[in-house]
Design a protein around this nucleic acid. Structure first.
Length: 92
DNA sequence: AGACTGATTGTTACC
DNA sequence: GGTAACAATCAGTCT
């Protein structure tokens, strides 16, 4: 059930070529928020920014996440290539 | 065919 | 260098 109950940091890779995956919309969103959130909260610690970011992230509606999702979609394709070579390397 | 899981991605800040 | 909340992901794997 729990899709992510044990989130061990510094996870390990099990694949040989480890094509990695793609970024998440949050990654792109965070890229823009990191400087914005921090700009509105000068001197706040990660605990505040991190949480605040998550709240704001959802504060937006699907339409607001569009720009982020759009990038996420691109990154996905990026990963596609990785997996393509990865599978090739393995099947090679 | 459907379900699951795990691994990964990036940010900040501090020791 | 590594960790920790925050969120999405979603591709590959398995029966």
């Amino acid at each position: 059930m729990a899709p992510s109950e044990k989130r061990k940091t510094t996870r390990k890779k099990k694949d040989p070529a480890a094509p990695k995956r793609s970024l998440s919309a949050y990654m792109f969103f965070a890229n823009e928020n990191r400087d914005i959130v921090r700009a509105e909260n000068p001197g706040i610690s990660f605990g505040q920014v991190g949480k605040l970011l998550g709240e704001r992230w959802k504060a937006l509606t699907g339409d607001d996440k569009v720009p982020y999702e759009n990038k996420a979609d691109q990154d996905k394709k990026r990963y596609e290539k990785e997996k393509a070579e990865y599978a090739k390397r393995n099947g090679n």
